[in-house]
Design a protein around this nucleic acid. Structure first.
Lengths: 141, 141
DNA sequence: ATGTGTGCAAACGCTTTGCAGTGGG
DNA sequence: CCCACTGCAAAGCGTTTGCACACAT
């Protein structure tokens, strides 16, 4: 996977070691990226590639990956943390009935917000747009 | 307070009882609304108006208020829950250094998102835009 | 040799739940 | 008068931390 190499390089450049555990977590994150996984889901997938990994290491690795900008923690009003690889901005639509999360492009809108806030003196690192309601499936039942 | 009466009526209309505890929580939420309070902060303020209230009741009341649309749980990637009275959409800017949260108007942008998604078959109940970065204070140090 | 990184298990902190009692409508 | 609601304390659950060990450099 080409993309994976990019992520691994980001880590190396920041004085963090590329351990089997960290590689396993990144691999898990890449594979699960379309479902906004929580720590437990990432943990279970990462075990395929590093069976001895512990949940604490997953949490510590997620912190490292957030710090180096590889992933971000998603701002959902959920009790558990959800994570995704950093990529171009998009809208998250979260269905309040079935909890499905949809991704919808929104580079343009995010960019406008970005520009306006930078003009006002804010340094913008991440724009996040979440929409809550009923998805087409749940809304028509 | 005029606004408070509106919130109380919403509750009454939904077959929920207007207890001193619930009134106290609503009053606390109104007073603290500009600081996106967590349950503990709401609890401490509510005790001014109902000294015997318990934290469990605060949590249960918050659930009721969310269900009736009086308040919403804010989608911040924080471990604790944060709440605010439902009002017209705005951007939250959350400083990653000092954790200050700023509110910035954005009715227009939210409305555009709203319209586009409704066209696609989603039923939108709540649009939430969060921006993360450094606030003017922290960015210039 | 040094210190970053790890697994385990225990601790932590916020939130939820069970239950017996209370009071609003 | 009945049942929604409450306070208390205990349990629950996701996350963090302390510690001894491992292993890269």
């Amino acid at each position: 996977m080409l993309q994976e190499i990019v992520e691994l390089e980001k880590l190396q450049k920041s004085d963090y070691r590329l351990t089997p555990q960290r590689k396993a977590v990144i691999k898990a994150l890449m594979e699960l990226d379309d479902e906004h996984p929580n720590a437990e889901t990432i943990f279970n997938r990462a075990r395929r590639y590093c069976p001895t990994i512990g949940i604490a290491t997953v949490y510590r690795t997620l912190d490292v990956l957030i710090e180096t900008g590889v992933i971000k923690k998603l701002p959902f009003p959920s009790r558990r943390g959800h994570y995704e690889i950093q990529k171009s901005p998009h809208i998250h639509f979260i269905c309040q009935k079935c909890s499905q999360t949809y991704e919808l492009d929104d580079e343009e809108k995010s960019f406008t917000v970005y520009q306006e806030l930078e003009k006002k003196g804010y340094k913008v690192r991440n724009v996040s747009i979440n929409v809550f309601g009923l998805c087409p499936d749940c809304g028509n039942k």
